[in-house]
């Protein structure tokens, strides 16, 4: 009898410990990284949710540390008398954890449901399950370079893949860079689609290869080119010397050769 009581209390303690442990882990959900502007991921979701809970942030909880989150964080730091640097470091995260509640399971569930989830505040989060372990969630938004949309990147990736899928990575960045150099140039159309679909500009457009599905490599190459990498040195034209039919293209001042293509002004 006595044994049973001891066993029972031991079991009780054990479960209490586990639950406490779980809750503990839920609260300190942040990993120990310093979160800064431009970051993406789970920590950012938590940061946004906590800031929203406190009423500093009223944008979307999308897992991308954008300007909205940045100002919210700075305001939080100001209100709580911390150093205002817009970085979520250890002290800031501790303060946030003390001041706000974060229910990972609930927040993730809402995000996955695709609910227009902009009110994570008092009273909203009732009837939730607490002790559920949740998987890390992919952000629902992405960083895109200034002045471009995901679709612009997609259409450029199509062109790059159609034109240069057999080329080394650098050659793919180079083709994307030429498209961008043309957009900048006075003698070409002023938009990405204008340049790509200019008649006779790209063979991949003429023969329909542009409509193949681009791979990840082509997309990364486009992103690198948009972010400033230009292996061509400002080239406006390129051609494959083995198949080039136009004599005129040979008269252009050449810059360099990358893979099978010669790049020129």
């Amino acid at each position: 009898m006595k044994n049973k009581v001891i066993l029972g209390s031991l079991l009780f303690l054990f479960f209490a410990y586990i639950t406490a442990d779980l809750t503990e882990r839920e609260v300190s959900g942040f990993s120990d990284q310093v979160i800064q502007h431009g970051a993406t991921g789970d920590d950012v979701i938590e940061l946004q949710a906590r800031l929203q809970h406190l009423g500093f942030y009223n944008g979307k909880i999308d897992g991308v540390f954008g300007w909205g989150t940045y100002w919210a964080l700075r305001n939080f730091q100001y209100e709580f008398g911390m150093e205002i640097d817009g970085l979520a470091g250890q002290t800031t995260k501790q303060k946030l954890e003390q001041a706000s509640e974060f229910d990972k399971a609930y927040v993730h569930e809402q995000i996955q449901k695709g609910a227009n989830f902009t009110h994570y505040g008092e009273g909203d989060n009732s009837g939730q399950s607490n002790n559920q372990e949740t998987e890390d969630l992919e952000p629902t938004a992405v960083n895109v370079p200034q002045g471009f949309s995901q679709n612009d990147i997609q259409i450029m990736a199509n062109a790059v893949y159609g034109e240069a899928r057999g080329e080394p990575y650098e050659g793919q960045v180079a083709v994307a860079a030429v498209i961008l150099n043309r957009v900048e140039s006075a003698s070409f159309p002023n938009t990405v689609s204008g340049v790509i679909f200019e008649p006779r500009a790209f063979t991949a457009v003429a023969d329909g290869q542009i409509w193949l599905t681009p791979n990840e490599s082509a997309k990364r190459a486009v992103l690198d080119a948009i972010n400033g990498w230009d292996p061509t040195g400002d080239a406006l034209y390129y051609f494959n010397p083995d198949t080039a039919t136009s004599g005129w293209i040979w008269t252009r001042p050449q810059i360099k050769r990358i893979g099978k293509h010669i790049f020129c002004m």
């Binding site: 080394p168 650098e170 292996p231 040195g233 001042p253 050449q254 360099k256 050769r257 990358i258 790049f263």
Partner: peptide, 27 residues
């Protein structure tokens, strides 16, 4: 390592390499 042609705005040395799991270029 190659030298750039006369279309380049400033004369460059361009290098490129290819290893098993990585490639790269430099100007």
């Amino acid at each position: 390592v190659t030298t750039s042609g006369d279309g380049a705005k400033v004369p460059l040395f361009s290098g490129s390499f290819k290893e098993q799991d990585r490639t790269g270029y430099i100007d």
